[in-house]
Design a protein around this nucleic acid. Sequence first.
DNA 1: GTTCGCTCACTTTTT
DNA 2: GTGAGCGAAC
Length: 805
Amino acid sequence: MAQNRKHLANAPDASDDPPFDLPEAVREPELGPSLSSRALQGAAAPPYLSALNPEQRQAVEALDGPVLVLAGAGTGKTRVLTTRIAHILASRKAYPSQLLAVTFTNKAAREMKERVGDLVGGIVEGMPWLGTFHSIGVKILRRHAELVGLKSGFTILDTDDQIRLMKQVIEAAGLDKDRWPARQLAGLIDGWKNRGLTPDKVPAGEAFGFASGKGAQLYAAYQRRLKELNACDFGDLLLENLRLFLEHPDVLADYQRRFRYMLVDEYQDTNIAQYLWLKLLAQSSPNLCCVGDDDQSIYGWRGAEVDNILRFEKDFPGARVIRLERNYRSTGHILAAASGLIAENKGRLGKTLFTDGHMGTKITVIAVWDDEEEARAIGDDIERMQKDGQRLNEIAILVRASFQMRAFEDRFITMGLPYRVIGGPRFYERQEIKDAIAYLEITANPANDLKFERIINVPKRGLGDTSVKRLHELARAREMPLYQAAQMIVETEELPGKARHSLAGLVANFERWRGQVGHMRHTELAELILDESGYTAMWQADKSPQAQSRLENLKELVRFMHEFDSLEGFLEHVSLVMDADQAGDGERVSLMTLHAAKGLEFEVVFLPGWEEGLFPHQRSLDESGQAGLEEERRLAYVGLTRAKRIAKVSFAQNRRNRGLYQSALPSRFVDELPEAHVEVLEAKLPFGGAYQNFAGPFGRSRFDDVAPFEATYETPGWQRAQERTKTRARDEWSPAKARKARRPTTIEGELVAASSGAPAFRPGERVSHQKFGAGTVADVDGNKLTIDFDTAGRKRVVDSFVARG
DNA sequence: GTTCGCTCACTTTTT
DNA sequence: GTGAGCGAAC
């Protein structure tokens, strides 16, 4: 390795991007084998290669021509990608700047950068074309912006801005904005852009769905507005690239020559626009290597086209397909269960994972009464494992939909079990962060109308719709940005005195702040702006429970800005990278959606909520039929294959969904698991107080009259799940009887809880909780308290964890 | 212009 | 059951 590093360090200056339009002959890296590489050739394979298994090695060494690496879950996909990059560089096939490596997320790009860096040393700094589709798209677009009707400094709209702009477009077209919501139009346009469709290419039939056929016109109008604002939305970053390439073959040819080797991560997630983009670039010298797994394609609903990966061999004639099937992550039973399940899917390229490791324990399936009991059972399970030395960081609960998380959070809070939610609302998506960024953005770039509109009346400064409308009229008439219009309008009598005064104040503030750019540290300036604008004060005055954490977030934002050396640098980063690392310290159980879990792995994985309608989700079936079902099944596959050692599936017979308590059938996926690898568990008796709903202080519950389950639950999965419960009961099993039998336990549980000596609390009392600290009791419901915590916000907790004072 | 209260919807989510 | 968003009343 050390040898290798040295060798690479001697390569031509990595950061030296060959001038773009240099003739081919000059740019050609005339790198005869260096002394060290010749020495290496005489030796055995470089160490980075010998660490690979034969298939991985094949995937790394097949450098020329199109290659599809079908990398099953846990087969070392990232290792192959990074080693391949290292190999290309080490064998001097290309300069770092001639490698194109695309990922979907910034996180993946970052990881790849790091891992390549580990392999080859700092040379990766010279890989300017390693990034997300979008970041690379921006880079290209900024170089040739004029060719597609933009200026190089164009701004990138986030979703909020996009919706705001679309609202304006809809209203400008004289349409009722309530009847035709901007959100829906945004969805349509996004979909078209994902498919590489410009307004003129939108199929007539589809455009008809919106505003009685005006869909495509609105799309066109929206695009015009974007150009006027010198702005792009995310979809444009690729779409405009396509246009650039198609309308300017010379530009395309330059990039084709430049990118000698191309690598694509998660190819199964590419949409049509991305596919077209790759296809154009790969046209002349298709050293294109795509890595992916058709079985893990779970983003069809946002435009990903599984077909891209299924068709690879046809799209790129002569393509080699290399399968990575040796799994290094999971035990035999887990792999077999996952493989058995996914085998139900029709449209697959097909691969079978195997492991040299142990069979391990079978995956388990358990039926629980309802979502509350599910959370309770899993919570208890985790506590037990924790006692046996299982680290919480290695435990995850993967749910289909985020509303399922609440039951777990409630339960874990009550238990005092530390957890973290992954993939919740992102840092940059929070209101306070977006507002703050809007202030910073306008300071740097006053022409950003949408950002200006965002904060013109935040905090409230008496500039309502009417004033904003005036501003718009003026800006339109003079064809100038809103900000400039504001500067102008305050010199006139157009606005009522109060509004005029406060707008003048705002403009004066921005002018002063802008004067400070470059004279003051950008972090200090940010603090100054947040302060002087009254934005911080607004949240300080807010007495809602989240206000405190919003202020924390603002501080965090400023802290984060330290990593950049200028305001502009920070803003450029922010516009693309809607992604900040969640500070995740300490031992915690992870709670996330199945989608968020892709690419992660845990020792222990809980898979709750395997019920028809929830998983597979009804909506997915309704909207996409068989394809939807298969995607849901892939989601199940992704979930199972996250587990290294233990996977536990559960389903509830009743679930509180939208305020409604409804009975549910076990998911068909439960029955599709191969029996040989599954152990059906009984729900433990006594039910740990699970039936509070039935035997609270009010005796019989409304659920007592629900029809007997036997009538409804006849699937093999259900029967299997019930089998042992039946034997246990030594009597003919019936839900009613079972419930009756359990009732005393429950009552006991209630009694124990009620008589545990916990003092009754009253609303308004000051209390403290071991986990959340001090707070004020807002409401008392039996032994459950609702408390407004000073820092943690409003939570429901059990009184036994609460002390006075 | 702001605030309150009603209605509606509610899978998954990156850039 | 809950939160967001919008319209009507202050």
